[in-house]
Nucleic acid binder design. Structure first.
Lengths: 304, 304
DNA sequence: CATGGGGAATAACTTTCTATTATTTGTCTT
DNA sequence: AAGACAAATAATAGAAAGTTATTCCCCATG
C-alpha cells in the first residue's frame, strides 16, 4: 500500500519540476527526495519520470497518480482539522441536564459563555429532577449533569463543584429586607414560600425547626427554588433559596439576606461511568468549576 | 499531521474492541498496538479510550475520528487500485454499480457484449441500493451507476438513458396471461407480489390506487423487481415489474402484459463530478444508451 | 576547450517510527 | 488460590525517511 508521504513527494516533484525545488518546498534535503522517487518507482514497478539530459519529466502515469492523490491529501487534512477541533473542544456534542435551580438561570449563562468560543458544539440543555438526571446519564442521553442533591447511583461519578448557602430572598420593600440577619425560625412569622417535606430541601429546613421543637409554617409550597424565586420577585412573599438559583441573573427585584443558622449546599457535577465522558463535557465541567470558584465573577451573589 | 497507519490502528481497536484483537487483525503484535494508541493520544492531546477494569472503551472523540477516517482509507485504496491498474497495463477500468432490476440481468449481458471487443478492460459489477450507488460513486469506488430512481446528490451527474414502463408479469398459464390488457386495480383480485409503500415503486403504485379511492392488496412484499420476477417465474403469482428487469433474459416462463394506466419509468446513468469520468466509462454509458434505444435489439421486451 | 553552475544520483550514516520478544500488572473466573 | 485474558511496560530490532558530503552529467559561456 502506497504511503501518503510518498505521494506528497511525488506531487511536489511534479509541481515544482525539480527534486531540489520539491526538497525546498517540503523542507527536506534533495537526496531525500531523490531517494524517495527511486523508492516509489521500485514499488510501483514502472518509471514515474523520464530522465533526460539530467532533468526529470513526469510520465503520464505519474501525472495520473498525482491527480488522484489530491483527494487523499484533502481527506487527510480534513481528519487533521477535525482532530484539531476536538482538541480545542470546538466541536462535539454536549448534552447537559440539571435541576431547576441551576438549570434555569445559571446554566444558560454558563453555556452561552462557554460556547461563545466554540461555535461548532452541538448543545442541549434539559431541566429535570434528580431521578431524571440519573436516568439521562445512565442511558447516555446526557453527558453531564448538575444537581444540588448528590444522586446516589453506583454507575455515576459525582464531584463537588462549588459551595453555596441557603439564603433568604425577599422583595426589596419587605420588612425583612432591612434586617441585618434573619433567623430561620422567624420565617414562621411572615408569609413565605417553602418546599414540601418530602423534598431534600424541605427536610433540611424541617430538621432545624424540629431541633428547636417547632414546626415550619408557610403559605405556599413549591417544588423548585427557581419557582420560589419567581414568586418572591413578583412580591408574593419571602423564600429560602439556594445561592445558585440567584447566580447569573441581575435581580433588582429581590433582596438577599443571610440566614441563621447557616445551611450550606453543594453543587455537584455528575458523569456516567458507563460511557467515556467526552472531551467537551470535561472541559465544560472544568469551566463551570473555575467560573464558580472565581469570586470576581458577576455570577457571584453578594449577600448584603 | 496524523498518519494513515495511526488511524488504521485506532479504527482496528475500536472495531475489534481489544488491542489483542486489533493486533491479530493487523498482523502485528499486541504491544505494537498498545504503544501506537498511547502515541496517538499523546499526539492529539486528549484520551481516545477509557481504561477501566483492564478494558478499553472508545471515547466519543475516538469514534468521531474513526468515522471520518473511513473516507481517508477509501481514498488510499483508490489510489492504490489506480497504481495497480497502471502497473498491469490495463487499458481502462470500469466499475459499475446498479440497482437490482438492472444489475441482475440486463447489465451482465450488456457488459459481456461491451467487453467482447475490449479484452484489456478491468471490470467490476456491483448491485446495491440507491444509497449505496451514491456512496460508491462519491467515494470513487465506482465509475458509473445505473438506477431507476434518480439519486439526488449535488456531486453526481444524472442523465436519462432509456424510457421503460411498468408491466405485468405472470406465469404463462395464469388467467391474466390471456387478457388483452390489465387494469392495475384488477391486481387486487389475484394473488400478487408487490413493493413496500416506503419504496419509490410502491409509492408510485399506491398513488394510482388512492386516486381511485382504493387500497393496494398483495400477498407478498419484496424489495426488488428482480426478486418479484423470480417469484413470478416460479409460479407464485403475478407482479408488476419494470421493463428493464425483463430485458436481457429469455423468459419462456413468464408472460408479459401492458397495464392500464401506463406507468413509465426511466433508467438513469449516474457519474460523479468529484473525479474525471474515465473514457471507458463514458463509452459504456453511450453503448448502453444506444443499445436501449435500438428497437431491433433482442433485449427489447415485446409486450403481447 | 576548460570551467563552473544547476540538477540528479550515490554513499554512508542518523533519526524516527514501527514493531518485536519477554515480562509484568490488573481483573475476572473458576 | 490458580488460571485465563487483556493491557501496559521495558528493552531492543528493523524499516522508513532524512542527513551530509561527494560525485556525475549536461551544457552554457568566456
Amino acid at each position: 500500500m502506497i504511503r501518503v508521504r510518498q505521494l506528497e513527494v511525488l506531487c511536489a516533484v511534479i509541481d515544482l519540476g525539480t527534486t531540489s525545488g520539491a526538497a525546498e518546498a517540503l523542507s527536506v534535503s534533495q537526496p531525500a527526495v531523490s531517494n524517495m522517487i527511486r523508492h516509489i518507482e521500485d514499488l510501483v514497478g514502472f518509471p514515474l519520470f523520464k530522465r533526460e539530459k539530467g532533468r526529470l519529466t513526469p510520465t503520464p502515469e505519474a501525472l495520473h497518480i498525482a491527480q488522484e492523490a489530491q483527494h487523499l491529501f484533502s481527506q487527510q487534512k480534513r481528519v487533521d482539522r477535525i482532530i484539531d477541533q476536538l482538541r480545542g473542544g470546538t466541536v462535539g456534542q454536549l448534552n447537559v441536564i440539571a435541576t431547576p435551580s441551576i438549570g434555569y438561570a445559571l446554566l444558560p449563562r454558563m453555556i452561552a459563555e462557554f460556547t461563545r468560543s466554540r461555535p461548532r458544539v452541538q448543545l442541549s440543555l434539559e431541566v429535570g429532577s434528580v431521578d431524571e438526571i440519573i436516568q439521562h446519564l445512565i442511558s447516555g442521553r446526557a453527558d453531564l449533569g448538575f444537581s444540588i442533591t448528590s444522586p446516589r447511583h453506583s454507575a455515576l461519578s459525582v464531584r463537588p463543584m462549588a459551595a453555596g448557602d441557603m439564603v433568604c430572598a425577599c422583595p426589596p420593600d419587605h420588612e425583612l429586607a432591612h434586617a441585618r440577619s434573619i433567623n430561620l425560625l422567624d420565617l414562621n412569622h411572615v408569609r413565605h414560600i417553602s418546599y414540601g417535606s418530602g423534598t431534600p430541601l424541605g427536610q433540611m429546613i424541617d430538621e432545624v425547626y424540629s431541633r428547636h421543637g417547632t414546626e415550619r409554617r408557610y403559605f405556599c409550597e413549591v417544588r423548585h427554588t427557581s419557582t420560589a424565586l419567581e414568586m418572591v420577585a413578583a412580591g408574593a412573599g419571602v423564600a429560602l433559596v439556594d445561592s445558585f438559583a440567584l447566580m447569573g441573573r441581575a435581580r433588582q427585584d429581590v433582596s438577599v439576606r443571610a440566614i441563621q443558622p447557616a445551611l450550606s449546599v453543594t453543587l455537584h457535577g455528575v458523569t456516567s461511568n458507563l460511557y467515556p465522558t467526552s472531551h467537551v463535557a470535561l472541559q465544560f465541567q472544568e469551566f463551570m468549576r473555575e467560573a464558580l470558584s472565581d469570586p470576581e465573577l458577576p455570577h457571584r451573589v453578594e449577600i448584603t
